[in-house]
Amino acid sequence: MNLVAFIAWLRRHLRRLVQGCCVLLALLVIVDAIPGVVNKEHAHTAVERWPGFWALFGWAGCVVLIVLSKWLGHAGLMQREDYYDE
């Protein structure tokens, strides 16, 4: 199998790929909501029993981390590359 050709093929069908991923994400949340499939009896907290809680947590966590970190970075942590040069 030619790896480069395979990646090129995936890139040519990027739109399909993204659509497929969206379907997968939706399925994931739907399956999570079916108690017969995903048994949440051993969940440690009440919020974890909400369908799609971890999806929300993942997405919101990602946004918070990026925004917070970039804010800190631009507040002074990020400096020019020659900052330590004398």
């Binding site: 994931l28 799609g52 966590g61």
Partner: peptide
């Protein structure tokens, strides 16, 4: 739990 967490991170 893990798949939701990670794949929705990818969305973000």
């Amino acid at each position: 739990e893990t798949l939701q967490l990670l794949l929705f991170t990818a969305v973000g």
